[in-house]
Structures are given as structure tokens and as C-alpha cells.
Amino acid sequence: MERIKKIFRLVHLSLWVLLTFLVAFQLGSEGDTHWRSTTAGFIATCLYVFYAHFHVLTQYTGKRSDGGYWLRLAGIVLTGPLPFMLFYHKEPDIGYYGMHLFSVVLFVFLSWLARVTENLVLNTIRKEQLEKQAAEAELHYLKSQINPHFLFNTLNNIHTLVYKQAPAAPEAVMQLASLMRYMIYESNAATVPLSRELDYVRDYVSLQQLRYKPSPVLDLHITGNPEACSVAPLLFIHLLENAYKHSPARLEPGALRVEVQVQADTLVFRVQNPVARKPANPLEEPGGIGLPNVRKRLALLYPGQHTLAIHDSGLIFTVTLTLHGLHSPAHERQAHLLHH
């Protein structure tokens, strides 16, 4: 905000210098031998009227008029020509005084126009800043939902391993520590390299694999160069969680499929899982936030740059997330976010 105010001050200074030069040039070309004092008087009057009215407008902006503004405005108009008369080389007269009232009225109008313009610009910037803060607060809230939900599910899995005294329990604890390190520290950035996010996905899949037979139940297939683009962190975890959560308790090797396709500035992330038969009285798992969270984050992070397609054949459930424009600079995406 201070930067914008400095720009306005610079614009004011530049315009006053330009006006002074034009008035002096005009009076000099007309052969006025007292062009210096005349120019000084005219500019002094203009400065006084402009900034006196500008200050009054600043005081009364957003307030109900109680007559105070109009009283001060009348005082400015009546006393406006006086600075010029101090520099005027001849005896002051009423006719000359009246003629300069036109200049006074003109600069009263210009000061009003400048005040309205500055208010409009500053209020627009404040509004955009508030919208940005609100969007960032909602993104922070949505991301904070991921941690307890993920931790709840994973600790249940580790609890089962510990209960069975499985040798894989210590390894599972270390994998969870690695995942939490990424979630707490590295995911604070606006974007992370896609390759790093996929490493996180692999760690998550390895942790989930501990629940199943030695053969991998998830087939991860990547095409393209993951190093070539960046994505918002923790964007795919809910899609994977849903795939595991809504699959049958027993899974054949390769029953779950994850495809990642990187082409130019487009990323396609597809998750496919078999659909479990629902019990007659299904119980809702506590803490489930799933796809609604993904939709909200996508709407905030990639407005107009994503599609989320869901297909349920009754036997196979497929979610396809497509992101466009991944190579666009971060400031462009933030500006795009503000206008949506």
C-alpha cells in the first residue's frame, strides 16, 4: 500500500513540475516581464486550493455531511486567489480577483477528481488483499484438515501391525515419520516439484502395502518428465486414500492403478480402484473429508486450469485429475486466483 502512495506522490510532483513549466513558457512567450512572479503566484494559488481541498476531502471521506465540509469549501474558494495577489506586481483589484476564481473552481474540481481516483485505486487494492488473505486462510484450513485425517488412518494401520507384533511395525513407524516430515515442513511451500510429490505418494503406498500380501496391490505408472513441472503439495493424497478406503478388504496384485502423465504443461493424474460391496448398514468412517476437500483446493489453487472427472461403472471407480498451465509463474496464478 505504501508503494502505491509513493507512486501517487511521484505523479503529483511530476504534474506540478510540468504545469509550472507550461505556465512559465506561456507567460514568457507573451513578453510578460514579470513572468517569474506571475508564475509563482499562479502556482501558489493552485497548490493552496488543490491541497487544502484535498485535505478536507480526506477528513470527510465516508462521513455524513454536517455542513462542515461546505463551510470549509466556501473558505477555500474565497481565499483561493489571495496567494496569487501576494506575488502580483500590480495593485490588486477586484476584477483580477474575480477572474482567478475560475482557476480556483477548476482546481477544486481537479482535487476532488484526484481524491476520488486515489480512493478508488486504494480501495480496490485493499479489497484484493482481503480476498487474497481469505483465500490463503481457506487454503491453510483445507491443508490442515489433511494431517489429522491422514494420521488417523495411518495410525490405525500401525496399531494393527503392533497388535499382531508384525516385524514390519518399526519400518512403518519410520515411514510415517518420513511422511510427516514432508507434510509439516516441505508442504508449506506454494508448490513443490512433481517428482518430490510423487516420492511422497510412493512412501504412502509403501506404508499402505503393509496391510496386504507381499505382492504390490497398487501399480504406479509414470510417463513424461516429473522434474519438468511443480504442483501444489498434498494434492493427490485424498484421491489415493479414497481408492484404498472404498476398495474391497482383499485386493489382488495390481488391483489399484495410478497413472501419471506429464506432457508439456499438462498433468494427468488418474486413480482406478475396484468398488467394494456396501454392507446393508454402512458405517461412516470418522474424519472423512475426501473429494470435497480436493474440489475446494482445486477451485482455489487452479481456477480455470483443472478438470476433475469421476466415473463409476459399479465395478471400477475412476478419478481423473487434469491440470493445465503448470509452467505459468506463481504470481500469475495468484492474480488469476484473486479474480475468481
Rank of each mutant, 00 (worst) to 15 (best):
I76V: 09
Q145C: 15
W70M: 09
P148Q: 06
N123D: 08
V121K: 02
L122R: 02
T124Y: 14
G68I: 03
L142G: 03
I76K: 02
A135Q: 15
Y97W: 11
L122M: 13
E91N: 10
D66T: 11
E91L: 05
Y88D: 04
K127R: 11
N153E: 09
E128Q: 15
P148S: 04
L120T: 12
H89M: 13
Y48W: 13
F87P: 00
L57Q: 05
L120Y: 08
N123L: 06
A74I: 08
T58L: 08
V116H: 06
H89F: 12
I146E: 03
H55Q: 12
K143I: 07
Q59R: 11
G68Y: 09
P92Q: 08
I125P: 03
V77Q: 07
H89Y: 08
Y141H: 12
F102I: 15
P148G: 03
V105G: 04
V116Q: 12
R126E: 07
G68A: 11
Y48D: 01
A52E: 06
Y96A: 05
E136F: 00
L113T: 12
L101S: 05
A137G: 12
G62D: 13
T61N: 10
Y48F: 11
F102S: 13
I94P: 12
D66G: 13
G80H: 00
H140N: 09
P83Q: 00
I146K: 01
Y88C: 02
V77H: 09
E118W: 07
A114L: 03
F109I: 14
L106K: 14
H89G: 10
Q145I: 04
Y51V: 01
